[in-house]
Each structure stands twice: as C-alpha cells, then as structure tokens.
Design a protein around this nucleic acid. Structure first.
Lengths: 333, 333
DNA sequence: CCGCCTTATGCAAGCGCTAACACAGGGCCG
DNA sequence: CGGCCCTGTGTTAGCGCTTGCATAAGGCGG
C-alpha cells in the first residue's frame, strides 16, 4: 500500500532474512531435501515474510534450463489437435513445465519463426506437429533442444516422433467401408502431408478391396464444420452419387451429416459419413459418428516422459513411438 | 557435422567475428537503426556465419523485460474463448511477443498457480479470463505486471479489464425473445460468475418484459455439445414445455438443435434455441443459430495496445474497456 | 578418543546479455 | 577555423540466480 519496493525482492533478501547464504535458499527452492529441516523452516518463513517470487530468467540463465516447453500447433479453433494439446499442456503443468504456445497457421515460414523464438528462449523441448522444411530441420538438429514431433511418424524425424501412420488410417478406413458394403466413396482432403497420406492409404487400399472409382474433394486447412455446405452441395451434383463420405475431421463429418439431413437424406442409409479424430462431439452426435480415435493423452505422456528423461541427463535418441489409432464404428457409417 | 560446439555461440562470438564490441551487436539486434549501415552489414554477416541465436533469458534478465505474455484460459476443447485466444496469440506473435499459455481448468487454485508461474517468468503482461480470488488479486496488484482481465468487466479489476457486461447480454436476450413472442424460456447455466450474470440479467429482464416463470437447468463447465442429450431429455418431461432454450454456448445450442430434430421437433417452431459466442459453427448450422457475438479480435487488439503502451513506458491505468456485444438474430430463435 | 566420512552450508565465479556513461571523430555554424 | 553538437561505438557494471569447490560440524568405527 505505502511504498512500492524500489527493487524486487531477490534471493539475497530472503537469505538475509533467514540468516543463511543465498546459495542455501536456492537449494531449498530447487531441492528442499538437501537442506537441514531447521534451516528449511527458517527459509520457508523468510520466503513468506518477504513475498519472494523467484526469477526464472535468472535461474534459467545460470542453469541453462528454462523449464519451459514450446508447443507449436497450426490452430486453436476447430482443431483436431485440441484434445491432445489440452492433455499436453496439463501434463506439462503438472510436471512444473510452462508452455510457450505458438500458432503456426498455414505458412511454413511461421513455423520456422516460432522455432527460432523457442530456441531463443532456450526451451527444454519443442513439441510440434511439423512437418519442418529442410533448413529448419537442420537448425533444430544443430541445437541441443529436444524436438518432439507429434501426430506423425516421418521416416527421419529431426528428433523424437510420437504418432501413428496416417497411411494406415486411410487403409483401415477403406477396409472397414469395403466390408460394410459401401461402393462409391467420396474423400474430402485438405492439403497437408498427413491428410494426404491418409488419402493415399485409402485410395490404394480401396483399389485392392473394391476397385471402383474414388471421387475426391479438397477443402482448406483446417478441415472444419463450415466446409460442409459446399462439400455437400458439390456432392449432390455427382452422378453416380457417393454412398459414403470420408472426412478429414469430425467437425466436417458433423457438418455433412447436418447438411444431408437438412436435404432429407437419411444417414447412414442414403449417405454414410466417416470422421477423424474422435473429437468430443463425435460420440454425442445424432447419429453418432464413426471415426478414428487417437490417444492424445498417451502422446502427451510419452512426450513428457522423454522430456523428463532428457532432463535427468540421459540422451533421448532420435526415434519413433507408434501410439497407433483405433477405428471406432458408430452409427454414421 | 564434425564437432558439436562445446559452448553455445554468444554475442561475444558474433562481436569478435564482426570486429565490433558486443554492445554494438546487441544494439543491432534490438534497434538496428542506431548502428551505422556498414557496421550493420558486418554484424549481419557475422550472425549468419556463426549461426547465432540470441538468448532471451540473458537479455530478459539484463533488461528486465521478458517479451513474453501469459495467457490464462480455462480450457481449449470446445472453448468459447478460442476465437479470441487465437486472435490474441496471433496478434502477440506479430508484435514479437511470445505467449506462455496456461490452462486453469475449474479450480481457482490452478489459476493462482499459473499466475505465480507467470510472475516467476517476469512476463510483461498476464491476460486472464479471471476472476481472481482476493489473495491472488493482491499478489497481482503488488507486482509490476500488467494484468489484463478479458471477457468481463468487474467493478474493481486488479488492472485493465477488456470485455462486456454479461448482465446486459442476458437482458438483451430476454428482450429479444419477449419481442419475438416466446413465453416459456428455459435457461441453461454453468456455474461461474459470467454465466451467472447473464442468467441474472435474463431473469430480471424477463420479469419486466413478460413475467411468467423462467425454468432453469445447470450444466458443468465448460458448456459443451455433449451436455445437450441430458438437457434435452430433462426438458421433455417438463410441463408446460419450454418454447425456447437459452444456452451458455453455441456448442450446447447446436447439440440441443440436433437433439430436438432427432426427436422430431422443428426448430425454431416447436423449440427455439439461442446460443452464445458466435462460434464458427453458429452461422453454418441448420438452422443457423441465433447468438451473441463478441469481437474477440477487438479484445485482442485492445490488449496488445495496452501492452505496447506499457512497454513504451507509459502507465496503463486500472480501467475498463467495454467492447460491447451484438445479438445476431438467425434462424434458430 | 582420534581420524575419516558424511552432511550442511558458505564462497565466488560465472551464465549472456543490456544500458548508462564515456569518448572519438566529423560536420557545421558563426 | 575553433568550438560544439551529433552520431556511432566501446567500456563496464550489473541483472538474479546456480553450482563446483571449500569448509565446518557431527557421527562413528576401531
């Protein structure tokens, strides 16, 4: 109330108050067990009394550990990553790691920018959905940061990769739909390597399983609810009409169901729909949406495990963790 | 390829390479205009040659400016804040500010924790949806951080508040529905002060406008799509049946529309629905959703303006910026 | 009861950068 | 043509913390 302290309270202030050296206070904060119980007591009281708040920039500089992790994703709105990211951010917070969040949007340039920013902050790890261009990949390799690419399993990840094979997703959807007797699939794809892999997997397997034509449509990234109107309108002009639409996200799938119903079609009888991501809406939609579930929490856990391992001094090899996926058959297809 | 540099390259390395002092390199990086063009040239080349990446922890420590802003929100999944947050993060990035993201969930304790973490990082500003408990409010007031509370306009914000009056939202919805001739509103509220204010505003104004009973239901935070099944099921047992449902989010509104339609009801004729947030889905739903639009981008801009002002040395007074809201009448009510 | 090991703490040297201050040199005005 | 100001750069003292090393007590086996 009265006078604002000219200077922020520092470790030294606490140390003086507790009548110990600042080194001991530092130890108490970072590793309480190494200080004697009675000393700990005094320090604790001193911290309370002074209202001390550590300065992590100073601490980070001295220890060259930032206790911060960069999480880089394309979007927030209608993003199929949201469940994974939420799990990630929560897990990280629980581990005492703060999250520097970057939205990379569509431009690879932004991804590179955000990575430079993360590197400037000397983050302990970068978690990104990638993919990276060659220059950025080289930059990441040169730096000591732990780079974790999630949601995809590239051949030669710059660091650790935790994800699944998108091509296999496409393949499994093709098998599933073939087995269910669908014959004229229409696949809606967004540009972006992961979506493309799923598409390729689908097309290849469909050729094997059934062999008829696979029609396609393209939407912009991110694949969202609002795209459904146009996709459905286009689809109505097609002859023969598709009997099932394979979507790049549950949001789009939901939109298509709504459009189809508004047009008087019964889903799945007259038009079936498959989503992707098992987003929160998928199980509650009418009809419930057949989709592919990714264990986002598992991805988050694996990522955190790697970060901890690294933090403990072990080296995390550039490798690949396949968390798989699960096709969930519901009512919409 | 050959030997990893034992030590990271620093300003001094660049300085040596460019044959200037490190101070000049620092100037070049932070304020290129003050160094002579020829020197700038040399430094630029030296930076490229050495692959220098600044250390913002060191810079921040020295300048006591972190160039980082904390953004604290309850959730990511199905969050009505997402549009605002996305705008915010993008605007911040464009201003060269990095974002430390915190998910506060439902517990006030977590909010306090995240604020401490942000303070430890000496962030330039904290943007939070609040509200804060008294202790945390005091903590924030004591610290030199710029605290920006968004989405709400409390009486005595600890810093700057940018938002709108939720009570007025409730009031305006009541007027709108009364004018449209609805008579038996059912309002679905989540715990949380903002939702409560909207509810109170609605109930108070409804009493003035029409006067009949307002029935209510409660859902958990966040107000999401999946809640619709239960809300709708409960609503079917009510006698007299409501003719309009006022929802806490567009996602819930969407869910209710779907449930109603699945039960054979026509929306809005047999049951009308009002949402909140003007989320991306609202305009594309069938029927399109009557909702309340918040100019998230505007909130983001105002917040960034305050941060810049503060950064320029001016003091940002604890005050309130009302960005208002806009009721968008669409098809669902 | 003494040397040795363990445990708890202090000392001091940085971590990599910024910014206040000093200063050199050149242009320009009177 | 001398003094003054402006521009550009160097010098230096930190910013607040961590950590390796040194040191002071105790504990304990022989």
């Amino acid at each position: 109330m009265s006078q604002a302290p000219a200077r922020n309270t520092t470790l030294d202030d606490v140390a003086a108050h507790a009548e110990v050296s600042s080194a001991t206070v530092s130890r108490y904060i970072n590793n309480p067990d190494v200080v004697a119980p009675r000393t700990a007591e005094r320090i604790k009281a001193a911290i309370e009394a002074t209202g001390y708040i550590p300065n992590l920039m100073a601490g980070g500089l001295a220890s060259s550990k930032s206790r911060m992790v960069a999480v880089l994703i394309p979007h927030l709105v209608d993003s199929i990553f949201n469940d994974t990211i939420e799990a990630m951010v929560n897990e990280l917070a629980a581990s005492g790691l703060n999250v520097m969040m970057g939205l990379t949007g569509l431009l690879p340039r932004r991804e590179a920018e955000m990575i430079r920013a993360a590197l400037s902050r000397r983050v302990d790890a970068i978690i990104s959905t990638g993919p990276l261009d060659e220059e950025t990949k080289a930059l990441v390799r040169r730096s000591p940061v732990l780079f974790i690419q999630v949601w995809d399993l590239p051949e030669h990840p710059p660091g650790l990769a935790i994800g699944f094979h998108h091509r296999d997703v496409g393949r499994d959807i093709a098998r599933f739909l073939a087995a269910r007797g669908y014959r004229r699939p229409h696949i809606v794809t967004a540009p972006g390597s992961r979506a493309m892999q799923r598409r390729d997997g689908f097309v290849a397997e469909w050729a094997v399983q059934v062999g008829g034509p696979v029609t396609e449509a393209t939407v912009s990234i991110p694949t969202r609810f609002g795209h459904a109107r146009k996709v459905f309108a286009d689809l109505r002009h097609m002859d023969p009409a598709p009997d099932v639409v394979v979507c790049g996200s549950d949001y789009l799938a939901q939109g298509l169901i709504i459009e189809a119903q508004a047009a008087g079609l019964r889903v799945p009888d007259q038009l079936a729909v498959v989503g992707f991501g098992n987003s929160s809406i998928a199980g509650d939609m009418r009809p419930t949406i057949t989709t592919v579930d990714i264990d986002g929490a598992r991805i988050a856990r694996e990522a955190i495990a790697a970060i901890r391992q690294r933090d403990a001094g072990e080296t995390v090899p550039a490798s690949v963790i396949d968390v798989g996926f699960r096709l969930i058959a519901r009512e919409s297809a």
